[in-house]
Amino acid sequence: MPVTPETPKWPVIQGIGVDGFLITFNDSLTEAANRAALAFRAALDGAGLCGVEETSTSLASVYLRFDLRAVDHETLRAALAALLQQADWYAAPLPTGRKLWRVPAVFGTALAPQLKEAASLAGLSPDQAIAEFCAHPLRVQAIGFAPGQPYLGQLPPQWDIPRQTGLTPRVPEGALAVAIRQMVLFSVSTPTGWRHVGQTALRLFQPDQPDPFILRPGDEVQLVPVTRAEFENIRQSDALGGATSQAVA
């Protein structure tokens, strides 16, 4: 079934900062808009437009930064508009070279104290919640906020739970937290408004390694529930925390 822009309004090109553009494919997260953003960024990198210095994606948009001394806004905006015309980005396939990661996680316990609270907000028991987190692989929809940190989705509609109003002062690296039908797997220890429901021993940002970033947008993450005792063993094993990967595309 062909997927076309969800409204005639999209995509839009907007200035961001003094030296950037944001190309937005939708104002809410959809599968098509997410794929469009990934595909358009790849095309943008391939196009080698004059003055473009850096590109990135977030959930449904592409950002680019350019050298103000190499190109002006009007010229670059026109080039971006022309590139947007070249394909139906919403129908683009996911990137190639994707991996499926199996990541052991302990849910609940003192390591992840908000499982019960989050499950209750979704109208589920803790066991039902764990079953839903682990039922299918979750897609890496974006990398952002902190180095190598994925937004994983999409969970079933009952997980459209809000962030808590107050901040949890600190969750540890490897924490799994849930809100708005997504999970975040934290790559650094940080304050958060997302509820901490699981804990992994996966280090997503390893700056001392040749490739410091473990996950890429489009990768899939299958969470595998383990007991606290199993987790403590895994934690000693390696920086990947028992995670394994295989190619999916």
Binding site: T57, I143, G148
Partner: peptide, 9 residues
């Protein structure tokens, strides 16, 4: 470090 935005840095 410019250039790592796509990786969240």
């Amino acid at each position: 470090r410019a250039g790592w935005l796509a990786q969240g840095l």
